[in-house]
């Protein structure tokens, strides 16, 4: 993923989690620490669809496969 897209996605995650810590702690389990919940996860999926044109269905990816910033970046990159 190029730097511009990565920055765009980081900004989206930061907005949804409402915490800049996501830029630093990229392997933190966002569900465990309460930065993501079901609602925020949907915002993220809708945001990714809006900005990158990638549609991910709610049950397509297991939570353990998309629960950190690095994993979110990876899942989006796979589909770009």
């Amino acid at each position: 993923m190029d730097a511009q897209r990565e920055e765009q996605l980081l900004k989206l995650i930061e907005e949804i989690c409402a915490d800049p810590v996501v830029r630093e702690e990229r392997d933190m389990d966002l569900f465990d620490v309460g930065l993501l919940d079901s609602m925020a996860a949907i915002e993220l999926l809708v945001g990714i669809e809006g900005e990158f044109g990638i549609s991910i269905a709610p049950t397509e990816v297991e939570r353990e496969e998309m629960n950190t910033v690095n994993l979110i970046l990876k899942r989006v990159e796979e589909r770009l």
Partner: peptide, 15 residues
Amino acid sequence: LRDFVFMRLTRALLK
């Protein structure tokens, strides 16, 4: 219910 009602409904509402 979370996966097939809540998440789909909120997705539609957000969009």
